[in-house]
Nucleic acid binder design. Structure first.
Lengths: 239, 239
DNA sequence: CGACCTATTGAATACCATCAAACGCCGTGG
DNA sequence: CCACGGCGTTTGATGGTATTCAATAGGTCG
C-alpha cells in the first residue's frame, strides 16, 4: 500500500522508480502524536520535517488575547512543515487535533534529495507552493465571502483534498474536530459557526453530525463557496 | 548595482560567485508593464516567471460579484509567479498597480538551475515559502485583528520588506496605490479603510498623504498589528 | 473649464461577537 | 442504578463593527 505522500505526488506527476524508493524511505520513521499535543512549536528550529500519515493537525498561532488562530488544517499526505528545511525558526506551531501518526524526515535527507534528485525536489517544492495556493484561497474566501460561504469553502477544500488520498467516500467524509476548531480556522466564533452550519443544513447543502460530514448538494455548496479546485493542481503533468 | 533579487537572497544566505552570476542573468530580459494592465492572467500557463525589478503589483482574483480580492502586494525583488514553474494553470492574475519593470525568466532556465545548482534552487524555493509565510500572516491578521490592526499589519509588513531592498527610508516609504487598493487587499470597503486611517492618524501612529507613508510610532503600530518580522526570515544562515 | 478619480464624511443597515443559559452525550464514581 | 461533571452543541439577547448608499470636497488632467 503506497503511503499518502506518494499518492499525493503521483496525482500531480509520474514518479520514476528511484523516486518512489526515496518517497518510501521518507515515511520510514513514524511516531504517534496524541490529540491535543504539539508536534512542533513556534520558535523551534527543528532538524527534521513532519509528514502526516494519519490524523488531523492544525497550524496555528496564539495571539496576545490568548486566542488561537488556525491558518491551515492538515491531513494524511501533507508535509506539514517541509518549509522548516528553509525557514527557521518556526513562526507558528503545529498541533494534533486528533491522534496522529507522523513521519520525521531528517533535513539532511531532504538536502541530499535536493542535491541529487532534481525532479523529486521540484515535486516537494510543488507541495509547498500548493500549500501557498491554499493559503491564498483561504485569504480570498475570508476577504470576500460571508461566514457561511467561508465555511462552505473550507468543506469543499477538505472534501477534495481528502478524496485525493482516499479518505472521502461519495460526498462524505469523517471530520473529527469540533466546531470551535473550525471557528479558530475561519476567524469566527464557535457560536457563529454553529448558526452558519444550521443555515447550510436548512438550505439542504450539507449535514455534519457525529463527526461525519455529508455533502447533500455539491453544486450548491460550490456556488456558495465560489469553489474551483483548480488551485489544488490535480492534473497530472510534467512538473 | 546588484538587482533587488540578489539583495533579497543575500539577506538570507551567502551566495557563491557562480550563483551571483546566475542571479544576474535572471534579470537580463526586462520589460515594462504599464499601470493598470495585467502581467499574467488567471487560466494562463506561462512559460516564464516574472521577477519584479521596480513598481508595485498585486495578485488578485475577480469574484462572482465583480469585486477584486487582492491576496498579495509585490515590490522590487519579489518573484511574483515563480510558482508558475510548478503550478499550472494560474489560479489568479497579477496586475500592475503602478508602471512596473519586470524580468521574464524562462522556465527552461529555472529548470536548468534546479538540475545543476542545488543551493540556489533551495534559495528560490525559500522565496516561495516566505511568500507562503506572508500569506499565513495575512490570514492570521485577517482572522483575528479588527480592521485598524489589519491595516497596521499591512503597513508593518510593507515597511520591512521595502527596507530589505532599500526602498524605505527612516520610518517612511512611498506607497503609490489608492485606499481602494488597500481595501481590496484587506477585504475591507474603501470607506472603512479611510475611517481606519483616520483613527491611526488620530492615535499618532502614522500618516499617509500624497502617496507617502510616514510611521510616527513604530512600537505602537507593531503592538496594534501584533507584528513580529520573524516570519520574513531576515537572518543570514545556511539554507 | 469640466471630467474624472480619490478622499472624506454622514446615515441606515447587515453581519458577527459576546454574554448567558440550556441541552445532549458520555464518562466517572457514589 | 443514578448523580454528577465536563465537553460540545444549540439557542436567545444585545452591542459593536463594518457595509452600503449617498453626498461633498479636493486634486489632476484633458
Amino acid at each position: 500500500m503506497p503511503n499518502p505522500l506518494q499518492v499525493s505526488l503521483e496525482r500531480r506527476d509520474r514518479l520514476e522508480p528511484h523516486e518512489v524508493a526515496i518517497v518510501e524511505r521518507l515515511a520510514e520513521r513514524s511516531k504517534l502524536v496524541p490529540a491535543g499535543t504539539d508536534m512542533v512549536r513556534e520558535g523551534e528550529s527543528p532538524q527534521h520535517s513532519l509528514l502526516m500519515l494519519s490524523g488531523w493537525s492544525a497550524r496555528y498561532n496564539i495571539l496576545s488575547d490568548g486566542k488561537r488562530q488556525i491558518s491551515a488544517l492538515h491531513i494524511a499526505g501533507d508535509f506539514v512543515d517541509l518549509h522548516s528545511l528553509l525557514l527557521k525558526p518556526m513562526d507558528h506551531s503545529v498541533g494534533a487535533l486528533t491522534d496522529c501518526t507522523v513521519a520525521e524526515v531528517p533535513h539532511t535527507l531532504l538536502r541530499d534529495i535536493s542535491a541529487t534528485a532534481p525532479h523529486l525536489t521540484r515535486m516537494l517544492w510543488m507541495l509547498t507552493v500548493i500549500d501557498a495556493a491554499i493559503f491564498r484561497r483561504w485569504l480570498v474566501a475570508s476577504g470576500h465571502l460571508p461566514a457561511p460561504g467561508q465555511i462552505a469553502h473550507c468543506f469543499c477544500d477538505l472534501f477534495v483534498r481528502l478524496s485525493v488520498v482516499g479518505l472521502a467516500e461519495e460526498f462524505a467524509f469523517d471530520l473529527p474536530v469540533s466546531q470551535a476548531d473550525v471557528g479558530d480556522a475561519m476567524g469566527l466564533s464557535a457560536v457563529h459557526v454553529n448558526r452558519c452550519l444550521k443555515s447550510l443544513r436548512r438550505d439542504g447543502l450539507l449535514r455534519w453530525h457525529g463527526g461525519r460530514v455529508t455533502i447533500l448538494d455539491w453544486d450548491g455548496l460550490r456556488a456558495l463557496a465560489e469553489f474551483d479546485a483548480a488551485y489544488l493542481n490535480l492534473e497530472r503533468r510534467d512538473r
